[in-house]
Design a protein around this nucleic acid. Structure first.
Lengths: 337, 337
DNA sequence: GCGAGTCACTGACGCGCGTAAGTTGAGCGA
DNA sequence: TCGCTCAACTTACGCGCGTCAGTGACTCGC
């Protein structure tokens, strides 16, 4: 319908249409409280804007104001699963409640594309989901952009906002298994390098929880998402020569737990009788497995809200909360443990 | 380390530091081919920029040039699954190959937040994953932004880039089941409204494929992601009074297929003997199910590349390809069908 | 009737950048 | 020696907006 190559509608056009100055237009559209504008002209401006289908240029606005309304979420190139998606959804909503907009970028670390994102968007804050190189990290800092790091490898990040939640997840897993009488626990990690740091965080939690409860060190095996190779891990756990065999394992996520279940099946065994299994995330497939998977679920909405508050806070130059985050973990007991 | 409230480094700073004019700086940094700049000054500018840690302001650049380097991907609020994540990953890479940057926004339709995104980012093109209201659609068009629609309900979108791929998926499902001797097929839809249009697209494909192969109309039942209720659907398929009972079903995605498997289990039945089941997506859980799920996988990388080409093409004012997309579907035969 | 004080509005500047349109000086042939 | 070309710059404008410092027209109290 409209000529796509036509000049864009600017606030001057609106001003002319409404018979006022450009400044007035700006005051009206931004509802500047320091100006008193009679309803009469206010309406005229608004109507003119609507009539011309005026959309302010974000670039010009940003240039003039000196800051954008964007919050950038940097995602590493791990497989995006159910939880990440849901966290993003909540984060988007939470950020919107602050009058800001969340945009997400998949940062393929190995491609070295992360850096370029700074030349394209100028967010007031960044939420980093992990997987950032040190160079990128310092680049962000150097650009004066406030960043909130989550799920990073322990030790590398200055702030690691969700570490405590991650610990709590493991604690709940272990507590449930211990409550069922298990003493010798296993931990199922991943063979996916991209997820290694993440799994490590969970392992640390399990280690700590075992220690707190006076249980022996958890026995760690990576579990590939393949029935055959998962079966090998299962056998390794069950047939430990030294000391008591492992009777229950904490998987670092539901898919890994599902793989263990598949491994058990391949050996003609079942959970929880032969080996109890508990996952993390409560992905849809968890409740559909055989046996239905017991798991632990994080309150992602609360986490998202917390993260949003943190970025806004940091962007506003306000002090961060200390290294605590709202811990809300739900244990979902089904049949596998 | 650095004072966070300090003035930002501009190209004037670089110019001063390098002892040249601002224009020269711009020419050097943008490698303008129409200017001849001796290596000597080129180096001076580059070094000055590096020394001052200069980052050009995206806003100013965009304002001056009239367009940004961003491509926006609009995601509806459906549960983000494995495939969407992977498609995004490939899309990000494919867009980057055009020198552009992909950012993603979760558009919660019901919150009415979609519109606001235009005030924040000004992409040169948009990839819409579906779930957009008509108002939003026209708003995009009115803003003169080129959009590429995928996975939208048939009939609503002008261009629906992936429709043919979606059809092809269903065709492969049906062909496999028919090849195994099944004649009366079922189709498992969803009870999630957000996914309804999506599932409808698949159903249309299955209908068409059945027709082409001379099979009777598929019998449609929604399958909730809950073993109990999925079992009800299974019983409905198996005990059809009229005509022959359904012996195989196409699920609109893997999770739904997994639910059917769980429903069968609850009834003491198994696939494929009592009811063959085939899914779509090949999510990690599919291979870990009991029995391992047969499924159909789309070549997401090729799709992503196609979509990226389309947006760039559209943004450049070039004609679109006709309503075809590269069809590359892989059948993964495991045990469930 | 007149200065002080609103009210409603406008003019003009600057944000940081790309780039068209000069300007300068060196090199070169006639 | 003079004019001409061309490399190597610089100057200046404009992108669309926010916003400060006015400015003229009106009250209002005395």
């Amino acid at each position: 319908m409209a000529n796509s190559a036509r000049r864009r509608v600017t606030s001057s056009d609106v001003a002319r249409e409404a018979g006022v100055s450009r400044a007035t237009v700006s005051y009206v559209l931004n509802a500047d409280p320091r100006q008193s504008i009679p309803e009469h002209t206010r309406r005229r401006v608004l109507e003119a804007a609507a009539r011309l289908n005026y959309l302010p240029s974000p670039a010009a606005r940003e240039l003039a104001r000196g800051s954008s309304d964007l919050v950038l979420c940097l995602l590493p190139d791990w497989p995006i699963g159910f939880s990440v998606g849901r966290l993003l959804e909540h984060l988007s909503r939470a950020v919107a409640e602050h009058g800001l907009t969340l945009v997400t970028h998949l940062a393929s670390v190995k491609d070295g594309l992360v850096q370029d994102i700074w030349r394209k968007v100028a967010p007031i804050g960044v939420v980093v989901m992990g997987g950032l190189s040190d160079a990128d990290r310092t680049a962000i800092q150097a650009a004066g952009i406030q960043a909130v790091h989550i799920l990073d490898e322990p030790g590398t990040a200055e702030h690691n906002e969700m570490r405590l939640s991650q610990m709590e997840i493991s604690r709940v897993q272990v507590a449930h298994l211990a409550g069922a009488g298990h003493r010798r626990l296993g931990f199922a990690g991943t063979d996916d390098e991209r997820l290694a740091g993440f799994a490590q965080l969970r392992l640390d939690g399990v280690r700590g929880a075992c220690e707190d409860l006076g249980l022996p060190e958890p026995v760690v095996h990576p579990v590939p998402l393949d029935p055959e190779r998962a079966a090998a891990a299962v056998e390794a756990w069950r047939s430990r020569g030294d000391g008591e065999p492992v009777t229950a394992v904490c998987a670092y996520n539901d898919e890994t737990a599902l793989a263990i279940l598949a491994g058990l099946r391949r050996l003609g065994l079942t959970a929880p009788g032969d080996l109890a299994v508990i996952g993390v995330d409560d992905i849809p497939s968890a409740g559909l497995a055989d046996p239905p998977l017991s798991t632990v679920e994080l309150d992602l909405e609360a986490q998202a809200r917390f993260l949003a508050d943190e970025v806004v806070r940091a962007a506003g130059g306000m002090p961060r909360f200390p290294d605590v985050s709202p811990i809300s973990v739900r244990l979902i007991v089904r049949d596998s443990a």
